[in-house]
């Protein structure tokens, strides 16, 4: 493929190249821009889902719903102490009342909290690994002996639908990329057919002089490769610029799963490979289109 790309000067002259003047590089640039955006969105989702899954799904929150503040504090201390003996648990953190108050204040208001609402005590528990049913049941029975009103919220439970949404969006991104690649192939086929018609007479002459289909296809492959590369670079740069801008906006919205919109290291390799893959795909499509069209000639 690389050798096919590196055509000598005299062969290039057979098909005059009017890059940029034609719409091909710009069509590919738009396709590449959209493909890259979809890929970036997919990779950010993968990263967020992976981090979220790793960080949150191994955590549970113990809620002690006890109206009596003294009993509530006692039960929290007892649970905190008892769970230290649990080998599956990595860290235990009794959430301070002030922190809970800060969390609730935007919704309930400071006055109401102080007045007459019993605020549950919270203990954040982080397991060494994502807890299974057995580990959660063990934790539940351990806590039940210390506090009858304690409730365990596994974050994996509320994370489930969130992760499913992430997965669905990931599939959507994959589907969009697939459709964009199909559209790119279609654009290449149309452009090559058009170029083939424009240069039909030159190709006929080459044929009559003993030129092969592959020799003719190489001329178009090179042209398409240059257009695809140019379009790829423009689309790639545009998509990265958009990503940097959006990443800044996400960071500004505060703590959330998407606040650290970032791409994993392997994602950068994938992103770098996309323009190359599209160029390769465009060259293959050009070759296939020319060879298929010429096969109808003698």
């Amino acid at each position: 493929m690389l050798l096919d790309f590196a055509l000598p000067d005299h062969e290039r002259k057979l098909i005059p190249e009017g890059r940029i003047s034609g719409p091909m590089p710009w069509v590919i640039a738009i396709m590449m821009f959209l493909t890259m955006l979809s890929a970036i969105a997919g990779l950010v989702l993968v990263n967020a889902a992976r981090q979220g899954s790793d960080d949150l799904s191994s955590r549970v929150t113990v809620q002690i719903i006890e109206p009596d503040p003294t009993a509530r504090a006692g039960q929290r201390a007892a649970i905190n102490k008892a769970l230290k003996s649990n080998q599956d648990i990595k860290t235990i953190r009794a959430v301070p009342d002030a922190e809970i108050r800060d969390l609730l204040e935007p919704w309930l208001g400071g006055d109401i909290i102080d007045a007459d609402i019993a605020i549950p005590a919270l203990v954040d528990v982080t397991f060494k690994n994502r807890p299974g049913k057995e580990q959660l049941e063990k934790l539940r029975s351990q806590i039940r002996t210390l506090s009858s009103s304690a409730r365990i919220d596994s974050q994996a439970v509320w994370m489930g639908p969130y992760l499913q949404l992430m997965r669905a969006l990931l599939w959507l991104a994959g589907g969009v990329i697939f459709l964009l690649l199909l559209a790119t192939c279609a654009a290449v086929i149309l452009a090559v057919r058009s170029a083939l018609n424009t240069h039909r007479e030159t190709i006929n002459i080459m044929h009559m002089l003993g030129g092969t289909d592959i020799q003719a296809a190489r001329l178009f492959q090179r042209r398409v490769a240059l257009d695809a590369m140019l379009g790829g670079v423009i689309g790639f740069a545009g998509a990265l610029a958009v990503f940097w801008i959006l990443a800044g906006r996400f960071a500004a919205i505060g703590p959330s799963l998407l606040s650290s919109a970032s791409i994993p290291w392997f994602g950068w390799i994938i992103l770098a490979l996309i323009p190359l893959a599209v160029t390769g795909l465009a060259m293959l499509m050009a070759r296939w289109t020319v060879v298929s069209a010429l096969r109808k000639m003698l």
Binding site: E11, K13, G210
Partner: peptide
């Protein structure tokens, strides 16, 4: 087989964007 046959077309069929030199050299390059 076509490379073993030289053809002079009635309407010449020269490649319009190639120079005289390149048109003559075309069969050899092919």
């Amino acid at each position: 087989f076509r490379r073993r046959i030289g053809v002079v077309f009635q309407d010449f069929r020269l490649v319009p964007h190639l120079s005289t030199f390149d048109n003559i050299a075309l069969p050899l390059r092919i």
